[in-house]
Simulated assay, not measured.
Amino acid sequence: MKNVIYSDVLVKPWITEKASLLLENGKYVFQVCVNSNKLTIQKAVEQLFNVKVKKVNIINTLGKNKRFKGRPGRRADSKKAVVTLLPNYKIDVFTGGQ
């Protein structure tokens, strides 16, 4: 991915019950662009939030075939990233602090 705009790599924070349990271990979950890789996700998080990333894990989810009002359709593919930060860093977007 050449000429990457890092604000486009991270789509939104993924806030679920399971993701909130991962916050206790310093792990943050983001929905990311489908064609991004671990290195671009790491650079995007480090640049946007001024933190140091220890590890990035990626979860690919393929879209399902569904029916809507009797017509066949397909949900979009998606990708999530579980970002582990070094012990002294945290991101305040998830906790609601400033």
Rank of each mutant, 00 (worst) to 15 (best):
M1P: 09
K2R: 11
K2M: 10
V4R: 02
Y6S: 04
Y6N: 06
Y6G: 02
S7N: 15
S7K: 15
L10Q: 09
V11F: 04
V11R: 11
V11H: 07
K12S: 11
K12D: 12
W14R: 09
W14V: 02
T16E: 08
T16Y: 06
T16R: 05
T16N: 10
E17S: 00
K18C: 00
A19S: 15
S20T: 13
S20D: 14
L22F: 04
L22R: 08
L23K: 05
E24G: 13
N25A: 10
G26C: 11
Y28V: 09
V29T: 14
V29K: 02
Q31P: 04
V32E: 10
V34I: 13
V34K: 08
N35W: 12
N37H: 10
T40Q: 11
Q42G: 06
Q42R: 15
Q42W: 03
K43Y: 10
K43L: 09
K43W: 02
A44D: 05
V45A: 05
L48Y: 07
F49W: 08
N50G: 01
K52P: 05
K52E: 15
K55P: 04
K55F: 11
V56W: 04
V56Y: 03
N57M: 08
I58Y: 07
I59W: 00
I59P: 00
N60P: 03
N60G: 03
N60I: 01
L62R: 14
G63S: 12
K64W: 03
K64R: 14
R67C: 00
K69W: 02
K69Y: 05
K69V: 00
G70E: 01
P72H: 01
G73T: 14
G73C: 10
G73F: 14
R75N: 02
R75M: 08
S78E: 05
K79Y: 12
K80H: 14
A81Y: 02
V83Q: 06
V83L: 10
T84C: 03
T84M: 05
L85G: 06
L85W: 06
L85H: 03
L86R: 08
L86T: 12
N88F: 10
K90M: 08
D92E: 11
V93N: 00
F94R: 08
T95A: 05
G96P: 14
G96Y: 13
G96Q: 14
G97D: 15
